[in-house]
Design a protein around this nucleic acid. Sequence first.
DNA 1: TTGCTCCTCACGTCACGTGAGGTGGC
DNA 2: TTGCTCCTCACGTCACGTGAGGTGGC
Lengths: 141, 141
Amino acid sequence: MRIGDVARATGTTTRTIRYYEEIGLLTGSAVRRAGEHRLYSEVDVDRVREIVRLKELLGVTLDELKQLVEAEDARAVLREEWERGVEDPERRRRILEEAAGHVDRQLELVRRRQAELARLEEDLSARRARNRRRLRELGDE
Amino acid sequence: MRIGDVARATGTTTRTIRYYEEIGLLTGSAVRRAGEHRLYSEVDVDRVREIVRLKELLGVTLDELKQLVEAEDARAVLREEWERGVEDPERRRRILEEAAGHVDRQLELVRRRQAELARLEEDLSARRARNRRRLRELGDE
DNA sequence: TTGCTCCTCACGTCACGTGAGGTGGC
DNA sequence: TTGCTCCTCACGTCACGTGAGGTGGC
């Protein structure tokens, strides 16, 4: 896939994807010489989707996302090691626990946002009801 | 209240409040000569809270918020007119309907965000469950 | 008088948007 | 060959952050 395909698939722009590469959030699978076209896989598409999602919905900065993505990459490397059967179970456990911590923190943020959105929804619904009532009153006169 | 009090009450910074004034989102109740301190009321605090809330939770730009706030201000003026009893009911109805439209659009955005957050929560919960299972498997060996 | 908070520039930053001018693949 | 998409600068923009230097109220 080329950069435009990824942009379309993720709902962003080519500029955004290039910027993510610029700050080290994305690598673009292959080695590439200056001027050559960037090439991407489905894995990259998923990664961009995940970045955009966490950024938009949870409001985390790209700097924070970089930390997180790097931690997940480390985890992926470990998992490969493990699948090849060369893994110390203690090290493996520590990685899994760390990953669990990441997920828990993200879930925390999700729930906080959900609570805030629920409150906003209530307030808006109340205003909506007031408006409807006033419109009915006008109609009855 | 002074600008620092408003910042503390709304969880933002004085710079943010000055910026909102700069782009015309906030007026700061009184007339003020250059160099004089800005003064605010509870109404201003509510306004800042509302702006921050819609910006953060719904991701609307300050430009869009300006349109919205201006529309609400127009509505407030109309309401005052109405309370003094000098109002054409047709004009009044149109204003109420417009306001209803605003609220409905905001509720739309709230619900879309809620749906996206629910999906994110599901995905994260699934990952959490997978992690726990793997940790248990490690413990059983 | 001493702190503290306020004021106005004004430059810096983050996360991109938007051309300008040029090259590469179907 | 003609479009289309890609490339690399590089400046612009939005929403503020962050001092610099100075003034105002308890």
